[in-house]
């Protein structure tokens, strides 16, 4: 059964599949590097590895400062390598059968694979593999 790790950033709620969720870090500061795409907010260092912190779908025109100072950083594993997202709130891990997968219809957002409704809140299910490739290359 699919389980989701749930979190939100700037009042937009997101879900990532538990199998892709590596780690949630608290109050970890990242670093700027020259040459990174504007969709990469900064780079985290975790266990000696560099991890790009990406703008979340829906926040593409948001303030990078807010993303950099977010309380939590969610590290996930894509097929192309580790990436991270900012979060100001986490909601734990929830099994798919505790909520409802919604039909997203035609109003699709790039990088969002669907929606998960849990306790009245709709979470954007992130397409981690797509985001890793598109956002680190400036898509």
């Amino acid at each position: 059964m699919t389980r989701f790790g749930l979190f939100s950033c700037c009042q937009i709620a997101y879900a990532v599949r538990l199998l892709q969720l590596c780690k949630v870090v608290h109050e970890k500061n990242g670093f700027l590097l020259p040459g990174i795409e504007k969709t990469v907010v900064e780079v985290l260092v975790d266990d000696g590895r560099l991890i790009p912190l990406l703008f979340l779908p829906g926040l593409s025109h948001g303030d990078p400062g807010a993303a950099r100072t977010a309380e939590y950083k969610i590290i996930v594993e894509s097929e192309a390598g580790l990436i991270a997202f900012s979060a100001d709130r986490t909601f734990g891990v929830v099994a798919e059968n505790k909520g409802e997968i919604l039909d997203s219809g035609e109003s699709k957002i790039a990088g969002v694979a669907g929606n998960f409704k849990y306790q009245g809140k709709v979470f954007n299910i992130l397409d981690v593999d797509f985001l890793a490739i598109e956002l680190t290359r400036g898509g």
């Binding site: 590097l33 590895r49 560099l50 790009p52 490739i133 290359r137």
Partner: peptide
């Protein structure tokens, strides 16, 4: 030593190649 991850290597290569 720290390896540049493939996701970053391609874009940062115009500025630097090692960290």
């Amino acid at each position: 030593p720290c390896e540049l991850p493939p996701l970053l290597k391609q874009t940062v290569n115009r500025c630097f190649s090692q960290v």
